[in-house]
Design a protein around this nucleic acid. Structure first.
Lengths: 290, 290, 290
DNA sequence: ATAGGTTTTGTCAAGCTTTTGTACAT
DNA sequence: ATGTACAAAAGCTTGACAAAACCTAT
C-alpha cells in the first residue's frame, strides 16, 4: 500500500543527512520527491521518499551529477526498464521481495508486470513458477513456514483483488473449490483468473470447502463445470463417494498436484498448469457446448 | 475488553509523564483521546488511552512531529487506514498530472488505482468523468487543444495496453468502430474493456473507420452485435443508408455523445455511459441469446 | 535495456582515465562516441560508451594509430551479421496473424521477437516493412480496409505499450505530431520509440493534431526539435505558413512518406525510415547542440 | 592548451506562515 | 475545566549567488 506521509522535512533531513534546503531544491529541480502537504502547507514525506533520497545519495557518491542521479533514483522503483524484463528476472525479484517480507516492493513489482504484460503471462511465467519453487524449498526445509505464509498471504490478496466481479458476465459458469482439509488455493485462484479472462463466470468457494457446499452450489448455479483442486491426493480419496454422485450430475474436473484418476468416478483430471488447463477446458466447452 | 474510564487526568499525566495541559491540547487538536466524563464533568480515561499516549510519545521520540505522531497513534489500533482514495481526489490528481504534461505521474497514478480498484470503477469513476470534464473545458475554451491531445494520447496508450488479447475467449463477439470522420475513440475503448470483462470478445476497428470496413468485418465474424460510436451526431447521419442495411443483417447499436434515434434505421441507441451500457448490452444478450 | 546516458564528461574521464579534451577530440575526429545531450547541451554518456573508450585505449596500447583504433572500437559491438536472419519469416508470420484477425497470435509473436531482439530491429525489420507492404497492397486493392484498421489498431496498442513513460529521462526533448487530417501515426510512434532508446524525451501529440497545438506545445516545452509526420504530402501544404513560422523559432523536421521540400520553409526533410532518421537526428543534435 | 562564456548545483537570506508546548484568565 | 494567548521552533517561497564543471572556438 502506498506509503503515508509522516515525516516533515526536518526529520527527513535528519534521517538522510541532506539539508532541508537541498531537499527542496531537489524537489523543485528534479522532482525527486513528491511530498503530500499538511493542511497548513508543510511537506509530508513517506518512508519510500527516504529510500529515494538514499538512492540519490548513492548515485551521487558513485560520481554521477545531480540531474542524472535523480533520474535514476526515481526510475528505480518501476521504470520502463522493468517493463521488458524477462520472466526469470521477474521471478527472482519476486522471490527476493517476498523473502525480505517486503510487501510494498512485491506490490510495486506486480504493478509493473501487470501494466506491461498479460495476466496470463504473469501467472504462468512468474507467480506459479515462484510458488512451485517455494514449495520445493519448503519441502527441503530451506524456506520457513513464516515465509510461506507471508508470501501466500500477499499473493492471495493481489490475485483476489484481480478477481473482483469474476462471477459476472456472459460465459459459462464454473464452480471452483478445494476439498476439506486442503488449504492451498492459489493455484485454483490462478486457474479461475485464467478462465475468467477467457470469458467464464466463476463461482469461487475457496479452500477447505465441505463437499456438501460444493453440491449445494452446483445445484444453485447449474454450472457448466465443477473443478475441485488439491495438492494432497488423499483429499480426493476422502470424498470419492460424493464426487461420484456429483459427476453423475455434470462435468466434474480434478486439478492441482494431487489430482489423479480415481476409479469409476467419472471426473476428468486436469494435470497441467492452470493456464494450459484453462485453455483446454475452454476448448472443450467450445467444441461441445451444453 | 472495552476500556472503562478509570483514570482521571492527573493520574494519566503521572503514569505517562505528560502534563495535563498537553494532554488536553492533544485531545483538542488531534483527537488523540476521547475520554468519557464523570457526572461532574471530569475526564475519565481508559487504559487503552494510556497506551495511545505512550504510542504518541514513542513516535515523538522517533522524531515525528505531533500532528503526524497523533495520526499514527490513533491509526495503530483501528484497522488500516482507508488506503482507497476517493473518486474525486483521483480525478483531480489525474487532471493535474495530465495538465502538467506529466506522463510518468499519470502512469503511476493509474497503476495504483488499477492495483486497488476494479477496471470498471477506474473507468467509470475516474477516467471517463475526467474526459467529460476535459471536453467541457475545451468547449468553453479553458483547456488548450495541445492538452487534450496529450491527455488523449497517454490514456489511449494505457487503455489499449489493458485491451491486450481482448478478442480471445468464449463469449459473444462484438465489432466496435467509430464512423468516418470521428476521431474520439476513448469512450469506445472503455466500452470494449467493460464488455471484455463481462465475457465478450472484441473486434476493434477504431477511430475513423469507413462503413464498408464495418460491414466487411460484420460479414467475416458474424458478431452478435455491432456498435458504432461517435461524439458528433452528424457522423451518423452521413452513413444512415449503410447503417440501415447493416441493421437488417443483425443487431446494431449506436453509442457516444452523438448517438440518437435515426428514423427507420433499426439501430438501438446506447445513451448512457460506457460501463452502464456494457451492463445493458450484456443483459440483453443474456435474455435473448442468438 | 538500451544504455541510457547518465555520465557527464567529467565522470567518463575519471572512470576511463582519458581527459575530457581528448574525449571530445575522439568524438569530433572519429565519431567514437555519440553522446546524447542534456537540455543545457552537456554531453551524456552511457555505460556502453565507457566500454568503447576502454576498447579504444586497448587498441591504442597495442600500437594501433588512433584512427584505426577508433574504427575497431566502434565496430566491436556492431554484433554478428545474422541480424537479417528471421526478418522475412517474422514479417510473413505477422502478416498472416493479422490477416486472420488473430490478435492473440500477433501478440505472442511480438512477445517472442521483443524478447530475443532489439526494439530497433523489430521495428525496422518487421513492423515497418509489414506496414509498407500493407499500404502497397491496400493501394492495389488487395488488402481490405477492415484488415488495415484492425492491424493498425493492434500494432498501435503494442507500440504505445512500449512507449510508457517515454517523456522521462535526461536527453533533449522532441515534440511529435501528425498534421491535421493525417491519421497514420504508427511510423511516428516507431520514430518516437527509436528516439527514446537513444536518450530523447518524447512529447507525443499524435495523429490529426491542429498546428496550433503543435505551436503551443513547442512554446511550453522549448523542445530541441519538432517533428511533423504525414503520409499525405498535401497535409504539409495546407499548413505551410504556420510551418514557416514554427521553423523560424526552432528546428523543425518533416517526416513520413509525404515529406518533401517546401519552398522557403526552413524545415529539414527526414526522408528515410524512422530508425535511420532517429540516428540522423541524434547525430545532428550532437554536432550542433543548441 | 587556452580563453571566454554558459550551465549546473549547493547554499544562503529575507519576509512570512504554521505548528506546538506552555501559560494564564475565567 | 475551558478557552485564549503567546512565543519559540520549524517551514514555506522567492530570489540570488558563487564555485565547479562544461561548452565552443581559436
Amino acid at each position: 500500500v502506498a506509503g503515508q506521509g509522516v515525516l516533515r522535512i526536518g526529520e527527513l533531513s535528519r534521517r538522510s543527512g541532506v539539508s532541508p534546503e537541498l531537499l527542496r531544491a531537489w524537489e523543485r529541480r528534479y522532482h525527486l520527491l513528491r511530498p503530500t502537504r499538511s493542511s497548513g502547507g508543510l511537506r509530508l514525506y513517506s518512508l519510500e521518499d527516504l529510500e529515494r533520497v538514499r538512492a540519490m545519495q548513492q548515485h551521487l557518491a558513485s560520481g554521477l551529477a545531480a540531474a542524472e542521479a535523480a533520474v535514476l533514483a526515481t526510475q528505480a522503483e518501476g521504470g520502463p526498464a522493468d517493463a521488458l524484463r524477462g520472466a526469470e528476472e521477474s521471478r527472482d525479484e519476486l522471490a527476493s521481495a517476498l523473502a525480505a517480507f517486503d510487501e510494498p516492493r512485491t506490490n510495486a513489482l506486480l504493478d509493473t508486470l501487470l501494466a506491461s504484460r498479460t495476466l496470463d503471462w504473469v501467472l504462468s511465467s512468474v507467480v506459479l513458477p515462484y510458488l512451485h519453487e517455494l514449495g520445493r524449498r519448503w519441502q527441503r526445509g530451506e524456506a520457513s513456514i513464516a515465509q510461506e505464509h507471508f508470501a501466500t498471504g500477499v499473493l492471495r490478496g493481489r490475485l483476489l483483488g484481480l478477481a473482483r466481479d469474476w462471477s459476472r458476465g456472459l460465459g459459462p459458469r464454473v464452480v471452483l473449490a478445494c476439498p476439506p482439509g486442503e488449504q492451498h488455493d492459489l493455484g485454483l485462484i490462478a486457474f479461475g483468473l485464467a478462465l475468467h479472462s477467457r470469458g467464464w463466470r466463476i463461482i469461487y468457494l475457496g479452500a477447505d470447502t465441505p463437499i456438501d457446499s460444493v453440491i449445494e452450489a452446483a445445484e444453485a448455479f447449474a454450472p457448466t463445470s465443477v473443478v475441485i483442486s488439491a495438492v494432497n491426493a488423499e483429499a480426493f480419496g476422502r470424498i470419492s463417494r460424493e464426487l461420484r454422485a456429483l459427476a453423475r450430475g455434470g462435468n466434474v474436473y480434478l486439478g492441482g498436484g494431487g489430482a489423479h484418476d480415481l476409479d469409476d468416478i467419472g471426473a476428468v483430471v486436469l494435470g497441467g498448469d492452470p493456464i494450459e488447463e484453462a485453455d483446454r477446458l475452454t476448448a472443450l466447452v467450445n467444441e461441445n457446448p451444453r
